[in-house]
Design a protein around this nucleic acid. Sequence first.
DNA 1: GTTAGCACTCGATTTAAAAGAGTGCTAACA
DNA 2: TGTTAGCACTCTTTTAAATCGAGTGCTAAC
Lengths: 342, 342
Amino acid sequence: MEMDERKATILQAIIRNYLETGEPVGSRTISKYTDLNLSSATIRNEMADLEEMGYIIQPHTSAGRIPSDKGYRFYVDTMMEAKDREISEMKKVLMERQDKLEDMLKGVVKLLAKDTQYASLITAPSANRNKLKFIQLSRIDDEHLLTVIVKEGNVIKNKVVNITEPVNEETLLKLNLMLNTQLSGMTMDEISLSMITGLKAQAGSHSGVISDVIDAVAEAISAEEDLKVYTSGANNILKYPELSDNSEKAGHLINTFEEREGLEELIIGGEDGDEAIKVYIGSENKVSGMEDCSVVTATYELEGGMKGTIGIVGPKRMDYDKVVGTLKSLRSGLDDLYKKDN
Amino acid sequence: MEMDERKATILQAIIRNYLETGEPVGSRTISKYTDLNLSSATIRNEMADLEEMGYIIQPHTSAGRIPSDKGYRFYVDTMMEAKDREISEMKKVLMERQDKLEDMLKGVVKLLAKDTQYASLITAPSANRNKLKFIQLSRIDDEHLLTVIVKEGNVIKNKVVNITEPVNEETLLKLNLMLNTQLSGMTMDEISLSMITGLKAQAGSHSGVISDVIDAVAEAISAEEDLKVYTSGANNILKYPELSDNSEKAGHLINTFEEREGLEELIIGGEDGDEAIKVYIGSENKVSGMEDCSVVTATYELEGGMKGTIGIVGPKRMDYDKVVGTLKSLRSGLDDLYKKDN
DNA sequence: GTTAGCACTCGATTTAAAAGAGTGCTAACA
DNA sequence: TGTTAGCACTCTTTTAAATCGAGTGCTAAC
């Protein structure tokens, strides 16, 4: 048994219909829905075949068919028509030139959730491969130094360092000079631990305080980039009975979104593929508790190779065309905006 | 008709029982539950009185009684036994000396939600009345200056300023000196707009760039303290049928928590009263969508008069004794820790 | 290969009946 | 006068049965 054109048409019709209604779809519906001009009986035969091939499933004897994961996969791979879908308000949000990247991301994810009616998330672009631009130590008071680290793209990190004995301005100047000449312009990856050890040795002539400072700088630099995730629309999960009926699972899902924990796993692996937009259907998804969900992710790229991910989580019965289309145009919108800007 | 001791005992028994079970409670139950040794018939008479007085309600003719808002209020005001309740893991979290306040707050609110099984929130202590400690301008590149503002308690704010023409080091030094001598040590409230205008005038001899810088500093200083709110356990809302049955409302509630918007209103008014812990029952609550909830808030205070708020949102049928007890001990825990530390 | 027709399945809806919990009221009691 | 037993009554919940209806699979005819 193999997939011919007619079977594909019928399968497509079944899926389209199911996406819309959420009800198992029967042969009679398809008979009218398509322009194949076939009787329901014929459709029934084909449907039996499609079920045997694993593309559709019968929830119980006397019900219509619903798509299986395999069916969805086939649809997404070969039949989806993802036309670009601008979100009307999106341009405005992007254009507002939020001085804070954070606000922009929050705005985008909120709009995305509102537009798609699915739970949405976005990660701040990772600056991991960014160059270090500038380090500055300042004296706050006798017990505290302030370390400011500026990276390419003007990403700023602060750290307050507790010191046990006062540091005079001269030492501070020296330290600043040393740190900047040695480290500035380097990528985070290039600053190895050995280099830091070297720096420490070089500063050895100074008081013990200096070691503390360098430790703190090292820590701030090598600190795991805390992959910030912004979410919106977790409550949309309640809108889809297949997800909210089991209130235990629904609670777990919502908690994941509120806590923003474990969402990284949705995103990992976004690098390796060449395809920018990925769809994970049901059990294809590795994150626990999301077996009944589909996840669509897209990576976007800002200037300087900074990459982030946009994601949408919804029921398997998701409007893939719409979601993928939206993500496509959103992705390129983000791209354009910041490329132009720089 | 007035409240006598026996009525109060019965009311207490009704409420206690209803808090536990969530079911309307009948006269027979009370007859056994209390040690009043009264028959159910007598209890029935008293219950009729209590209903007439507005403390309890009959959902329908042949059901038991449930407390009204007024009943809950009476309970909370006069009968609650809020014994201090340490959260076992809390000490550990507090002791871990998170170098980031943010992490500590996140840990606390998460633990609180886990312990109480209600939706929880905590606001970062407001530094509004804090003194300005230190301002520093640094040159990032020809087009950008970095403004770092450190406040008492070592709260740091950054702002990148776009400039149209380069600023040399000398000007920068002057500016830094001027800003620090003029502003350092002042509270945010004391820095009036007129002062800023004065500063601008004083700097008038420099190039136009300086005006930009001062503008930016002014903005950063006077910028609304963005009352950061951390939440946890929004999904707990799904655990209480009286809240989750209406999935529209539940979604709205959960969304409020995820978006962290509008939560401020829960907290406003925390200042005026002298009572540190406040309970808002049902319609006493001003926030829309929370008419069926009770809210308990507590203010805590860190060194330097920085105040924050802890809050819990749950069904009206909330374990007030437990929640208030927990908040009490948590509040004093936060107090102690940071007071000792400084 | 397609289709009409029909018996059959099984969840969903409707309906009816029964059970249960609790009240209010009355009359008796201490 | 306050307390209590008793009983009729109300209304929800539970249970069971009957009916409905969407949809299938199969057969036989076109």
